[in-house]
Design a protein around this nucleic acid. Structure first.
Ligand code: FES
Ligand code: FES
Lengths: 143, 143
DNA sequence: TCTTAAATATGATTTTTATCATGAAATATT
DNA sequence: AATATTTCATGATAAAAATCATATTTAAGA
């Protein structure tokens, strides 16, 4: 479904949503440990996300990663688009090409509507909304 | 979603469902070309499927691959289980572990029901049913 | 201005997945 | 029995994804 990298990235961003702010930046070491992802690996992912303005960062002492208010209002799918690329989300389930409504593959008819629903949810849910779920105890960040 | 290998495998099996029978076996070369998959690669996949009795085969002259009637009545998901393994279908969307209903991850609540629906469809639909769809012109085997 | 703590850029290594190749075993035909 | 045709078993190579490592740049604070 999602690549390893995307899973890690979503976990990291949600962790930041919960524990960081412009005044309270977090250093990669303190992100990697609690979400149980290799430090050097998550560091690289955070860099990509930062470059694409999914998350914010400042370097130097007292620096670190954080989520600005506008960062938090982004849909979750933005993370996946950066890390996995659009193709992974929209490709046909039987071919290597894009899903084709006009010439549906045999699996299209039975799976497409569910997939659309998933896509829509990822589009609509913001980082912040997911973070609130966690705070309310409705969901949990897995190790 | 599905691995490359699974996509190829499903295409190959559906091709066999449409064009083969116990009396009309098909040689791998004549499977690879129409579904547009590298010959040596699909050959290996067909061997795995054959070993696990998803498809049938006989060797020697006049031999080839085919689908017996009981092969055709199997659910599509069997192909995926062999090629991708169970884990890919049931793992949590945020962790590397199994999806955990008791301690749902943040994506679980928004995606799980759609995913269940997909799993159920793959469980219920037989190879033969998908092949009939193609014959009726309701779907198409992609290149 | 110097030192230090952090991200950033870049790239090396390892593991997994995808692809290719080849010889051995089996079966039908002669 | 010999031969040709096919799958089957095994393993080699190539490409991609995941992981690790390090030197450079930036900013804060002394
Ligand atoms: S998923 Fe195959 S055509 Fe839509
Ligand atoms: S998908 Fe993550 S717990 Fe179910």
């Amino acid at each position: 479904m999602l690549s390893n990298s995307s899973k890690y990235a979503v976990k990291a961003v949600l962790f930041l949503a919960l524990h960081s702010s412009e005044e309270n930046k977090i250093v990669v070491k303190d992100i990697a440990a609690p979400i149980n992802v290799p430090l050097a690996y998550i560091a690289k992912l955070l860099q990509e996300l930062s470059k694409e303005n999914i998350i914010s960062s400042t370097r130097g002492p007292k620096g670190g990663f954080y989520l600005s208010d506008s960062n938090k209002e982004q849909p979750v799918i933005n993370i996946l688009k950066i890390i996995d690329g659009e193709k992974r989300l929209t490709s046909c389930m039987l071919s290597l090409e894009k899903c084709n409504e006009e010439k549906p593959c045999p699996l299209h008819n039975i799976l497409s509507s569910s997939r659309q629903t998933i896509l829509k949810s990822l589009q609509e849910k913001t980082i912040n909304e997911l973070a609130l779920d966690i705070e309310k105890g409705n969901s949990f960040l897995p190790l």
